[in-house]
Design a protein around this nucleic acid. Sequence first.
DNA 1: AACGCGCCCTGTCCGC
DNA 2: TGCGGACAGGGCGCGT
Length: 273
Amino acid sequence: MPELPEAETIVRGLASRLPGRTITGVHVKHADVLPGLTPAAFGRALRGRRFEAVERRAKKVVLRLDDGRRLVVNLGMTGGLVLSRSPRAAEATHVAVRLDLDDGEQLLYDDARRFGRLELLDPEGWERKHAALGAEPLADDFTGKVLFELTQRSRTPIRNWLLDQRRVAGVGNIYAAEALFRAGIDPARPAKTVTRRQATKLRDALRDVLAESIAARGTTISDFRDEQGEAGAFARWLRVYGREDEPCVKCGRPIVRAVLANRSSFFCRHCQR
DNA sequence: AACGCGCCCTGTCCGC
DNA sequence: TGCGGACAGGGCGCGT
């Protein structure tokens, strides 16, 4: 489900609401979302803590606490953070973890498939995690030159390359497909065959599609909801993802689905070379 | 050592 | 209507 724009949508929603509020209770319904931590230890660590800031790194929602630690939420495929007083909060039907807040509202971690994970990291642990992640595609220093140089050592298909979070962080299957379409690049092309000029086009396409999706509050295919439980609106602007056999918006030929590294890849054979 | 692959888990949809 | 199979936005651990 959530890639960078969806995580960013949740972060922006929570950033104006969470800081300053204190966790008064912790309820763990599905301990499998807490790797290496018992529910009791998780509860002890969080109870009494105040939220200080809400940030994003890659596809992760980072909730900074007043003791310097961070609750790092990896949303997996179907994870979401929803505030219980939102009109649509009742649609959070797979709540794995519930945090009670001092004003009586609750922050719900909802995740049907439970591929998501909640980690509690001290500053050093977070620094290690942060360092293991690649470039932020929306950062000022993510230039065409940087992307070009990063790609030149890898023979893996450029679509797979984009999904590797150690290189560029935050891009998933939807936005990889959309950016490659906009840049006119075949998803199966070995990364190192992308030219300098194409790298710049790809960089621009990535930033454009991610920014446009954030402006639309993310892509909801079926599961994604923001912190109020609302769907994102970007799905209608997708040009290739999920559009197998539909006409290409540029040339009218059918969009093709091919499997690369066990995951669907959508593209136009004519417009992407 | 850079890859691809299977798997984690639940829900939904499609063909029979 | 029921049932099996395919598929889904992610990412870890494994083997090669």
